[in-house]
């Protein structure tokens, strides 16, 4: 081997830098990464599909199947752990009858356990449909979920629009 054989990687490098932002964009739009989307991205960036898939599966953020209507992210940071976040997770497991993939039996909820969200001072924390809730207990969690259930039964066509806290605070 007389010289570095990696020359062919050079021209592709600039566009390759866009891969992760593009995957994030696709997921933001579609909710997950479909094989079609990844294949198309691979073509656009002139990168092997295996590599695109390799990158996508490396990062926690990317999902390969759609999520339920409501997404509950349970923080698995240290402070939350010390303050019994596992109890919250187990409670969700029971109440929502979670399947191994983290989706509830009725498919309405997806429960994810996520890396520290950086709100340790008010642990334990969950993120429900994009909004943080701190100092949680099983009772407070139940109140939140009851609020969602009530809301969804009353206006089943428009789930996820209004924040459920109003219900829990009233």
């Amino acid at each position: 081997m007389s010289s570095a054989p990696a020359t062919l990687a050079q021209p592709a490098e600039l566009s390759r830098e866009q891969l992760i932002p593009l995957l994030q964009e696709v997921q933001a739009k579609d909710g997950y990464l479909s094989q079609t989307a990844m294949t198309e991205l691979a073509q656009a960036l002139d990168t092997p599909v295996a590599s695109v898939y390799g990158v996508a599966t490396f990062y926690n953020q990317f999902r390969f199947a759609p999520l339920g209507e409501h997404v509950i992210e349970v923080c698995r940071g240290t402070a939350c752990h010390v303050k019994q976040s596992l109890t919250l997770y187990q409670h969700l497991e029971r109440r929502l009858k979670l399947r191994p993939d983290g989706n509830s039996a009725d498919g309405r909820f997806s429960v994810l356990s996520v890396a520290c969200v950086g709100a340790c001072s008010i642990a334990p924390v969950i993120k429900l449909d994009g909004e943080f809730y701190g100092h949680l207990t099983v009772e407070k969690l139940d109140a939140l979920l009851d609020g969602i259930d009530k809301h969804d039964t009353e206006s089943p066509t428009e789930p996820n629009q209004e924040q459920p806290t109003e219900a829990s605070h009233s």
């Binding site: 490098e13 390759r16 830098e17 866009q18 891969l19 992760i20 932002p21 995957l23 994030q24 960036l45 590599s51 390799g54 990158v55 490396f58 990062y59 926690n60 953020q61 990317f62 890396a115």
Partner: peptide
Amino acid sequence: IKQGAGAFVCGEETAILASIEGGRGM
């Protein structure tokens, strides 16, 4: 701004480089 995509190891400096370059953060 480059948004991480969820990988603790990307706090390691050479892993950040790999990630910014569009690869697996190894």
